[in-house]
């Protein structure tokens, strides 16, 4: 699958099938600090994702 990580600006390809929360663990991203978007829609950390998905991991941050 393709994953865009907003915080670092990286676009990575990763072989993964399973829950979003395990994917975030694998990428060492705290679920509290991000929202995950698939096809323009928000998904939760309990949702399943697979190889064909394209995900965006957007940071939850206060600009100040």
């Amino acid at each position: 699958m393709e994953v865009f990580i907003e915080k670092t600006g990286e676009k990575i390809k990763i072989s993964y099938m399973g829950k979003v929360k395990s994917l975030l663990n694998k990428l060492k991203i705290n679920n509290e600090t991000v929202i995950v978007v698939r096809d323009g829609e928000l998904i939760t950390e309990e949702d399943l994702v697979d190889e064909k998905d394209k995900l965006k991991i957007l940071s939850v941050i206060s600009g100040g």
Binding site: E6, S59, I61, G63, G64
Partner: peptide, 8 residues
């Protein structure tokens, strides 16, 4: 804007 302040 979802940018973070560079001074943070």
């Amino acid at each position: 804007d979802f940018e973070e302040c560079p001074n943070v």
